[in-house]
Structures are given as structure tokens and as C-alpha cells.
Amino acid sequence: MDYKEIKHLLDLYLEGNTNLSEEENLRLFFKSTKELPPEWESFRSFFGYYDQAKLERYPQEITKRKSLFRPWMAAASLVAIVLSLQFYSSSLNALSTDQMDAQIAFDQFKDNMKKVSSRLNKGAKQVSYLDYWNETTQKLIK
């Protein structure tokens, strides 16, 4: 095909007036021709993209993975459950040393907080003078 013919087909193409076989010819032309007038480079990109897009396939089904579950796993998990139940029930009975420590620390904390709160209000009396001072300064400003 000569360039004049291609030019004519491209004009028809842009008007939506080419049929499928004419479009196929254009496709082949742009695929096989290396040297193109610069104003036709865009057509090559478009036809190239369309060709590539047509190659896309639905992904192959993934072969089913073998089951990871084995009979011995059932036995192992049963043993694990029994052991953990035993451990849990034994831990309910007595306070562990950690828990004892925590209890002692909490009691001390409580005592300290009581002392602090009993002395808290002494300071509050001093603070009330501030209000008085505020009022007088307000008057001065006015």
C-alpha cells in the first residue's frame, strides 16, 4: 500500500467509516513499517496498544493446593487443648508471687494517697487569698 492510500484510509478511520478489513490493513501497515511520517506516529501507538490488549487472557486456574491438614495434627491439637486446660485450672487456685507483689504495691499506694488527700485542703485556704487579690486588681484597672 502506498502512503496516499494509507492517508485516505486514516481519514476514513477517523470518521468511523472504515470496515474491519480496512482497519486490519492499517494495523498491519503500522506494525510492519518502520519509517513513518511523524504525524502518523500516534496511530502506531494506538494500534500497538490495541494489539497488545487483545493478548490478555483470563488467568489460568490455580491448581488446588494439597490440604495442609494431616491426621496427626488432630491428635496434637487435642493434647495441646488438654494441657492448656490443666494449666488454666491450676492457675486459678493460688495467687502467684507476681499477684502477691502487686497486691502489696497497691496497698502501699492506697495509704500514700490517703495521706496526700488529708493534707490537700490545707493548701486550698492559702489559694483563696488569690481571689481576694484578683478582685482588688480588677477594681484598680477599672
Binding site: Y13, L14, G16, L20, E24, Y50
Partner: peptide, 30 residues
């Protein structure tokens, strides 16, 4: 451009007249 259907088929699929398909296509290509 990718599935190479003719205008008649595209018109059926999109439920629009064939002429409209051409007009659309021309507009999009430009």
C-alpha cells in the same frame, strides 16, 4: 479496536443504532 466486532454487533450489544456507533467511534478516535 480490541475485539473487532462489526458495527451491527456493537449496536446490538450497546442497544443503540448503528449510525450512533459510528458517530461515537469517530468522536472517540479523534
Amino acid at each position: 479496536e480490541i475485539e473487532h466486532y462489526d458495527f451491527d454487533q456493537i449496536a446490538t450489544i450497546l442497544e443503540i443504532p448503528e449510525g450512533t456507533v459510528r458517530v461515537y467511534l469517530s468522536r472517540i478516535r479523534k
